[in-house]
Design a protein around this nucleic acid. Structure first.
Length: 527
RNA sequence: GCGCCCAUAGCUCAGCCUGGAUAGAGCGCCGGGCUACGGACCCGGGUGCGGGGGUUCAAAUCCUCCUGGGCGCACCA
């Protein structure tokens, strides 16, 4: 709204700046409340191109700036800021709409129904999920929730590697176990293999490798889905790699051959890259490489299924593949910009004084289920969301399982529980028309200001694909709620004031419930 | 050697994309706070942008070099 007002006022400047010279963001929030709620730094930025003192530009722009009458006050500050302070009356008038919007509060039509796919987890179905998969799972899920909340038609997909040499090893490993033979080279051992062998024997399944591979896949995916379910995650689609053969593969191979991108060498089939580093697509032994199936899979997403955008959530150890997948897309005349790859950095686990790195190569296997037993889904999710995905992080198990003020997830949940409690306590208070104008203490005004940022937070987090912004916002909101609660008695003898504070409490509860909800963290009414 | 990520308070991390007015939060530490809706709370206390150049009226933020950590660079998965 303010942004538009600024844009409308611009033509009044004696020297109208070219549109292309305008920065994308004209209005920003201030850090210091003394400067008001919003500030416009445009005069400072324009000073150079207009060759005029910034303060003069600020004065001219400010005098042309018209805001809705009750909205706020405009002031110019040296060396060329335009500051805007929102009026309490305007803040107070926003409470009822928030309560009425309920779970819609914060949602927007940013995406306007455009289709986007979020592909995440997609871990090889070797068995139950490991803790090392959890971060990507949470990040992907919350990205999908953000896209849902901003009106994208979102699909959550899990890509299943059910093709290639590994899948044969599954069956061979179970077969070996059934027959009491040694584990095949590169094969698997352990509880999962044992239980599958038992199941096959009981059901009278013959030790046939293909059938056992199929059984493995089925059971492994069930376990994975169950682990994800406990984390509050459900995929809309499970896409099997084997679906890409032979049709997609043949079509794509024909296209690339026609484009002169295919070369045969040393018995293998290669992709000719502009980088000078060619990549194998089909190995000498006839099995496709991951690169080849990645190409087929992404072409399938864009061309066959018509997603406008695709978000892939990958682990840091797959970073190197981004460039070549995008190159292949470009060669196939698919705009690589339509693919966003979120790289989630590695997590190490800290227990006591000991820190263990969860890299795939290190082969450290703490199962996700085990960790969920220990810390629960809420703490797990919230901890991952308290870091930006592109920073390595340390997961402190002792802290996550601690039920005390040291654990940040309780701070936010407690704020919600407090509001729920005061609302049920206040329900007995008689109804009176709320005296909104009495919500004028610093704590009440601050709480309203924080609440009203919520839709911007959702939109910006969705645009940037940065779910951690939700967690930081939630923490800020919870702080404002706690301060309000401590300093403003809600239920009092003063009925109109009580009604007003109850309305504020309802609006705040709506906001924090929606914030926790978008993160997939529960919002308990008592704890 | 090449590519990507990271380096901000004692610790764990936001802020960087889109430069702006005294750089933030949690934990830990010290000191305070309940006659009333839940003390898992609130209030006060402070030290910091890894280093060097550069661009700019203005740099944690942009460019560059360096240092230190992580992950890749397979006819592995």
């Amino acid at each position: 709204m303010i942004d538009q007002a600024v844009r409308r006022a611009l033509p009044s400047l004696s020297e109208w700046p070219a549109d292309g010279e305008l920065p994308p963001i004209l209005v920003e929030g201030t850090q210091n409340p003394a400067h008001g709620d919003y500030s416009v730094t445009l005069p400072l930025k324009l000073a150079r191109t207009l060759r005029r003192p910034p303060i003069a530009i600020a004065n001219e722009l400010a005098s042309a700036l018209t805001l809705p009458p009750s909205f706020g006050r405009i002031a110019v500050a040296a060396p060329g800021f335009i500051n805007i302070t929102v009026e309490p009356a305007w803040l107070q008038s926003q409470l009822r709409p928030i309560v009425d919007a309920a779970e819609q509060w914060g949602k927007s039509d940013l995406g306007r129904g455009r289709s986007v796919q979020v592909e995440f987890v997609s871990s090889n179905p070797t068995g139950p999920l490991l803790f090392s998969h959890a971060r990507g799972a949470v990040v992907g899920d919350v990205v999908a929730r953000l896209l849902d909340a901003t009106s994208f038609a979102t699909q959550r997909e899990y890509y299943v590697n059910d093709q290639g040499r590994q899948i044969r090893l599954f069956g061979e490993s179970v077969r070996a176990r059934m027959l009491g033979q040694p584990v095949p080279e590169g094969g698997y051992s352990g509880d999962f293999v044992g239980s599958l062998a038992d199941e096959a024997k009981k059901s009278g399944l013959s030790p046939n490798t293909d059938a056992l591979s199929e059984l493995w896949l089925k059971r492994a995916l069930e376990l994975i889905a169950a682990d994800l379910e406990r984390l509050g995650i459900r995929h809309d689609a499970w896409f099997y790699e084997s679906k890409l053969y032979p049709t997609d593969a043949d079509e794509t191979m024909a296209r690339l051959t026609q484009l002169g991108r295919i070369v045969e060498r040393d018995g293998a089939i290669w992709f000719k890259s502009d980088t000078g580093k060619d990549e194998v697509l089909i190995r000498r032994d006839g099995y496709p490489t991951y690169f080849w199936s990645d190409i087929l899979y992404h072409r399938n997403k864009f061309e066959k299924r018509g997603f406008e955008r695709v978000v892939d959530v990958w682990g840091a150890d797959h970073q190197g593949q981004i460039g070549r997948v995008k190159e292949a897309l470009a060669v196939l005349a698919i705009d690589p910009q339509r693919l966003s790859v979120l790289v989630v950095q590695l997590v190490s686990v800290k227990r006591g004084e000991e820190s263990i790195r969860m890299s795939r190569r290190a082969g450290v296997g703490i199962s996700l289920a085990e960790m969920l037993d220990e810390v629960g889904p809420d703490a797990l999710r919230y901890f991952f969301l308290l870091r930006s995905a592109d920073a390595q992080m340390e997961f402190d198990v002792d802290l996550a399982r601690r039920q005390s003020n040291e654990n940040p997830v309780y701070y936010a949940q407690y704020a919600h529980a407090r509001l729920a409690n005061v609302l049920s306590f206040g329900a007995q208070a008689g109804s009176a028309p709320p005296a909104l104008e009495h919500l004028d203490s610093e704590w009440e005004l601050e709480l309203m200001r924080v609440m009203l940022r919520w839709p911007d937070v959702v939109r910006e987090a969705a645009e940037a694909l940065e779910p951690h912004r939700l967690a930081f916002y939630t923490d800020e909101l919870a702080a404002a709620i706690h301060r309000f609660y401590k300093n403003c008695r809600v239920v009092t003898e003063d009925a109109p004031l009580t009604a007003a504070r109850l309305l504020l409490s309802r609006a705040a509860r709506t906001t924090i419930a929606n914030a926790l909800g978008l993160m997939g963290v529960s919002a308990p009414s008592r704890m």
